[in-house]
């Protein structure tokens, strides 16, 4: 049995993403490095053979999924209910939590300008966010963060896959602001150092926090 075959067997049998470490448990001949090499080999092979599926990375795990162009065929079957696509309010809330975590409900509502208790509950039910701690201050408010499943839901490898603001089209902020001083803008967003540090935050850390 080649390592590639063993890795293929584990991925084939699994319904959820597996991390290289989890895959390596399959045999003493495997370690994380060998698994990664095997994963690359599999991907190349599936690509070359024109397979209808491919190995995709979701969070820090890997899973065999069908290629997107086959979605129209699969949608003709009765499929196991997939989570509904999220509402705008839910996406907005997730966006804020993803960038500002850990974050409490009050801070979230200040940014959104609307009450958010029910959307927080829904996102928790879908395991897209989780309580990751308690804040200082009155009542020790619950703090929320994104989960590993959040990465899976959006097919992200890590939080650093999320766009930086400078990559986003911002239709309103095109004018050079004389009236809003630089310090105003600085307080709007976090300092570059922080963003640098967290740019590399991996899905694994996120998961640990959410446990």
């Amino acid at each position: 049995m080649s390592p590639e075959q063993i890795v293929e067997a584990t991925l084939f049998a699994s319904q959820t993403p597996l991390t290289p470490r989890e895959i390596a448990r399959a045999d003493e001949s495997l370690d994380v490095g060998v698994v990664r090499t095997a994963l690359d080999g599999l991907r190349e092979r599936y690509e070359g053979d024109g397979r209808a599926f491919q190995v995709y990375q979701l969070g820090d795990g890997y899973q065999i999924l069908t290629r997107p162009e086959f979605a129209p065929y699969l949608e003709r079957f009765d499929s196991v209910p997939r989570p509904p696509s999220l509402s705008r309010a839910a996406l907005e809330t997730l966006a804020i939590i993803a960038y500002r975590q850990p974050l409490g409900r009050i801070e979230l509502e200040e940014i959104r300008g609307v009450a958010s208790a029910s959307v927080l509950r829904t996102l928790q039910d879908w395991e897209l966010i989780a309580v990751v701690g308690r804040g200082e201050g009155l009542g020790r408010p619950l703090l929320y963060g994104t989960t590993k499943h959040f990465l899976d839901h959006f097919a992200l490898q890590s939080l650093s896959d999320l766009p930086r603001a400078q990559d986003l089209p911002i239709s309103l902020a095109r004018t050079t602001a004389e009236e809003v001083t630089e310090s105003d803008i600085g307080s709007l967003v976090r300092s570059p150092e922080t963003s640098e540090a967290t740019g590399s935050m991996s899905g694994e850390e996120v998961e640990t926090e959410s446990r």
Partner: peptide, 27 residues
């Protein structure tokens, strides 16, 4: 507005992700 833009990006990523099917999805 920044967060709205990010929410839009997430919405696109979600739609793309939903086009991938894992095992056990067909009945």
């Amino acid at each position: 507005e920044l967060f709205q833009e990010v929410a839009g990006v997430l919405g696109g990523a979600e739609a793309e992700r939903r086009r991938h099917f894992g095992k056990g999805y067909l009945a």
